[in-house]
């Protein structure tokens, strides 16, 4: 902890950036807050994977990987969290935190599903998540992301994604802002995300808005409002054990204004997004000439 604080000044941050490779194993970033299934960690110096136990410390540069039907919840020092679903691989390359100054980090997601939620001092904190196709700049945010085939399959069902999109099933990246929104309770910073790829940036500033990068070298498509079905599929990837615990019908009949769409996902009505049964209310308005749907 003392070491973390010592390293956390702006000047030190600059030093850290240049010194990271040599110091990586010395800097703790957080712990394994909860584990389901088989989660592994390796380092550059110790490439043989070792099984992760709950409360195990993670360090700069650790390569973290979940196996099939597994899940990991990482608690970072500022109480920000990463949740990663099954078959996900990530690295937290850098994490710097000072309770008085805020937090910054740089992480990479190679494949799989992830959720990041900001912790304390989020107004002064930022972070960057890199995927194979783009980067996500975050502030005071809860976001979900998914990289790989599942991202492609979700995107293919979204009306905002042109049918002739050239996807790469290994690197396709889907990012959705989860909140907090402007109507949030509590003293939370409203979430914002910048999704950048191929020199273009899409800003997500409302919960449920998404951006999709179909392959390396492609600019992000969006923002668009991710469908309930898409949100549900990401949720299933992030909490596979909860998904397996579900059986039979949920609260479908108890919720008003619902319609069942492909994949048995649900559409529920709300004021800003009225839905009629079997309607396409989750689909955006007609696209503009650039193939990008206008918001709402």
């Amino acid at each position: 902890m003392k070491r973390q604080l010592l390293l956390s000044s702006i000047a030190a941050t600059t030093l850290i950036l240049t010194a990271a490779p040599a110091m990586a194993e010395d800097v703790e970033v957080g712990i394994a807050g909860a584990i389901k299934g088989d989660v592994r960690v390796s380092t550059q110096d110790k490439p043989k994977e070792a099984r992760v136990a709950r409360k195990q410390r993670f360090f700069w540069g650790d390569v973290i990987r979940t196996k099939k039907k597994s899940q990991l919840h990482i608690l970072l020092l500022d109480r920000s969290t990463f949740t990663i679903g099954s078959r996900t691989q990530m690295v937290i390359d850098r994490f710097v935190y000072d309770p008085n100054e805020g937090r910054s980090f740089f992480a990479r997601i190679f494949e799989g599903a992830f959720r990041f939620m900001s912790g304390r001092n989020d107004a002064n904190s930022g972070g960057t998540i890199e995927t194979p196709t783009g980067t996500i700049g975050i502030r005071g945010t809860a976001l979900d992301g998914i990289v790989g085939e599942e991202a492609m399959e979700i995107a293919e069902e979204e009306a905002a994604i042109p049918e002739d999109t050239d996807h790469d099933e290994d690197t396709a990246t889907l990012i959705v802002l989860r909140g907090p929104g402007e109507a949030t309770e509590g003293d939370l910073t409203v979430g914002e995300i910048d999704v950048t790829a191929a020199g273009e940036t899409v800003e997500l500033n409302q919960p449920g808005f998404a951006a999709y990068i179909p392959r390396e070298g492609s600019p992000p498509i969006g923002p668009f409002r991710l469908s309930f079905a898409g949100l549900g599929r990401i949720q299933d990837q992030l909490q596979p054990s909860v998904t397996r615990a579900n059986s039979g019908n949920g609260l479908v009949k108890a919720l008003a204004g619902i319609a069942v769409i492909a994949g048995a996902a649900l559409i529920l009505s709300d004021d800003d997004d009225p839905v009629e049964p079997n309607s396409t209310a989750d689909q955006p308005s007609p696209k503009d000439s650039a193939g990008r749907p206008p918001i709402d």
Partner: peptide, 9 residues
């Protein structure tokens, strides 16, 4: 936190 759609899902 105003993630109404997420809450409904």
């Amino acid at each position: 936190v105003d993630d109404i759609r997420g809450g409904k899902v």
